[in-house]
Design a protein around this nucleic acid. Structure first.
Length: 590
RNA sequence: GGGGCCGUAGUUCAGCGGAUUAGAAUGCCGGACUGUCGAUCCGGAGGUCGCGGGUUCGAACCCCGUCGGCCCCGCCA
């Protein structure tokens, strides 16, 4: 070993010991006859003291050569610091090591940015030199947290009798869903593997095999555009169980999260998590992933605004639409400009604009003040228990359109008014999703989750009578307004699965070609089963209070899907292409 | 595919109603200093102002294009 201790380990108990340390020089404070080095490794920082007059000429020369981020090995004696020189900021701050010998294990070029936390460094430069960025505290702590967190999850799974099983990375492309990453097959000209969007079908196979409790911390791949919470490759904590119902999956998920979160942080997780139906979520929050850290729910105003005197409102109601609104209690901090922006937003979404009323002590302000009836104002004040300074937005139109817009406004206003002040963590199950929805672009029916999700309906023969009315046995887990997990009870009967495929518009030849292996497998005694998957990167992001998933991934990609460290993706040799029996159809730009 | 913000020293940023020697802080290099821990003090080096084109007597600054990073919409069963 090149060291007897780590740089975060030595304390007052070690005073008097001879120690050997190795690490990176993170700070050099040169006082002429005395030099202090901060020696850093993964575990912490230890101050090394060089009393130059006491050093041999060789050692003196070496010490003078040392620069930031050199890798050095030192040996010396641990001494207690005098009280006035104790540094309470570091764990080893009450001791220091008096240098007796040293060796430069490696030098370092001048750095592209400072390792010490301080100014925010541009992300492009951080990603290019990610190995240096990862020496910095905040990102390093995130990566270590991620490891601790998954370890606790594994502990939990193990204690609950789960089996961890790996599934293929080179697998079969399946239609629908996200765009696949494809891998050409050299041995099978013209055929392609796809990287898995999730291990969905394999974990169902494992249930059929009898591994009734499976989990995997699985890498998944989706070739879609990136966002601050989306990367083309990401990690799911994937779970599947047999002989269970929704309640069992939710229960084990809650216990898993409680265990792993509470063992790795100071965050308290209250279980069970509240549940909200999809319908209620849309009605109250305008989204299927509501942030319930604050109220300001969407309110129904159709009745109270019915005879308000506003012609727009009345025509909306006559056409069968609804009027809904948001009541902002300290609405004075929403400026005219903000209101204009919301108005513009609504127009972009195809509306006529947003209505609003500011309630003051004895008067109101509103663009439709003149036409608004006294009685309407009075009713609103009473029924909504309005306090002076409140701002009421209202919007009329088709219900889901109205809810959707108000939902987005709700999030925006909460951000503006800083309604979420403290760090809190509100988990929420959203249940009773519809099984199908209409894809408006292609005017066809598609699954809200995936086609293996079981309906809340067991009459196979009448399933296609009114498929849009049927609910699914799916559930999503939402944390602070971000979807962090989702799952369902699956279809375990061949006939039902075939029926679903046919409702989706697939002919038997088509579903047999694409999903024949699943249908065959369901035919050999598939047990009732279900599961869910968590987005690990997103969970870590939220728990660490980060704005981007990239702060939880050691080597993430940029918005254009490029790895700035390695340069991937990159052109390849002609030979490599021809071996794969493919041609590149791309005009290189001149 | 679309909208927005950004790109100036190694880094973070200022300068941008056109003409300046393109600045600051920090880092880097050299020197001084025996108790610092964001050390301090003195000195120094360091810039194709992302790239290309245009307007102009003159462009970091105005215009067009392009590349790159970020945020968002679409997309993400």
């Amino acid at each position: 070993m090149l060291r007897t201790h780590t740089c975060g380990q030595i304390n007052l108990d070690d005073v008097g010991k001879k120690v050997m340390l190795a690490g990176w020089v993170s700070s050099i404070r040169d006082h002429g006859n005395i030099i202090f080095f901060d020696l850093r490794d993964r575990y912490g920082i230890t101050q090394i003291v060089c009393n130059l007059p006491e050093l041999t000429p060789e050692l003196l020369e070496l010490v003078n050569k040392v620069r930031q981020e050199f890798v050095i090995q030192i040996s010396g004696s641990v001494v207690a610091r005098s009280p006035e020189t104790v540094n309470p900021k570091i764990s080893t701050g009450s001791i220091e090591v008096i240098l007796e010998d040293a060796k430069i294990l490696n030098t370092s070029d001048a750095l592209p940015f400072e390792i010490q936390e301080g100014e925010n460094i541009g992300e492009n430069i951080r990603l290019k030199y990610r190995y240096l960025d990862l020496r910095r505290d905040s990102i390093k702590e995130n990566i270590i947290f991620r490891s601790d967190f998954t370890l606790k999850m594994r502990e939990f799974f193990s204690s609950e009798n789960f089996v961890e099983i790996e599934t293929p990375i080179l697998t079969k492309s399946t239609p629908e869903g996200a765009r696949d990453f494809l891998v050409p097959s050299r041995l099978n000209p013209g055929s392609f593997y796809a990287l898995p969007q999730s291990p969905q079908l394999f974990k169902q196979m494992l249930m059929i095999s009898g591994f009734d409790r499976y989990y995997q911390i699985a890498r998944c791949f989706r070739d879609e555009d990136l966002r601050s919470d989306r990367q083309p490759e990401f990690t799911q904590v994937d779970i599947e169980m047999s002989f269970i119902e929704e309640q069992d999956i939710m229960d084990i998920s809650e216990r898993l999260i409680k265990y792993s979160v509470e063992k790795t942080s100071n965050i308290k997780v209250d279980v069970p998590f509240p549940r909200l139906t999809y319908k209620k979520a849309i009605e109250k929050y305008g989204t299927d992933k509501p942030d319930i850290r604050f109220g300001m729910e969407i309110i129904e105003l159709s009745e109270s605004m019915a005879n308000s005197g506003s012609s727009i409102i009345e025509s909306v109601l006559q056409e069968g639409g609804r009027v809904k609104g948001l009541l902002i209690e300290n609405g004075e901090s929403i400026s005219i400009k903000d209101v204009d922006n919301f108005n513009e937003f609504v127009k972009q979404k195809g509306g006529k604009g947003i209505g609003w009323i500011r309630f003051r002590e004895n008067e109101i302000a509103s663009p439709i003040k003149k036409s608004l009836k006294e009685q309407t104002i009075k009713n609103l004040r009473e029924s909504l228990k309005i306090t002076p300074g409140s701002l009421l937005f209202f919007l009329g139109g088709e219900t889901s359109w109205v809810c959707n817009i108000l939902g987005e406004m709700r999030t925006e206003i909460a951000k503006k008014l800083n309604l979420v002040k403290e760090e809190i963590f509100k988990f929420l199950w959203v249940v009773d999703f519809p099984l199908f929805e209409i894809n408006p672009d292609e005017d066809r029916i598609q699954c809200v989750h995936h086609p293996f999700t079981s309906p809340q309906y067991d009459d196979i023969d009448t399933l296609d009578k009114d498929p849009l009315k049927i609910k699914s046995r799916a559930y999503d887990l939402v944390l602070n307004g971000i979807e962090i997990g989702g799952g369902s009870i699956r279809i375990h009967q061949r006939k039902l699965q075939e029926k679903i495929f046919s409702i989706l518009g697939m002919k038997p030849e088509e579903y047999n070609e694409k999903f024949g292996f699943l249908l065959d497998a369901l035919g050999y005694g598939a047990p009732p089963h279900g599961g869910l998957a968590f987005g690990l990167d997103r969970m870590v992001m939220i728990l660490r209070n980060e704005e981007s998933i990239r702060e939880t991934i050691p080597f993430p990609k940029t918005q254009k899907g490029v790895c700035l460290l390695s340069g991937a993706p990159s052109p390849v040799d002609r030979k490599q292409i021809s071996d794969l029996h493919i041609k590149v159809d791309f005009q290189t730009k001149q």
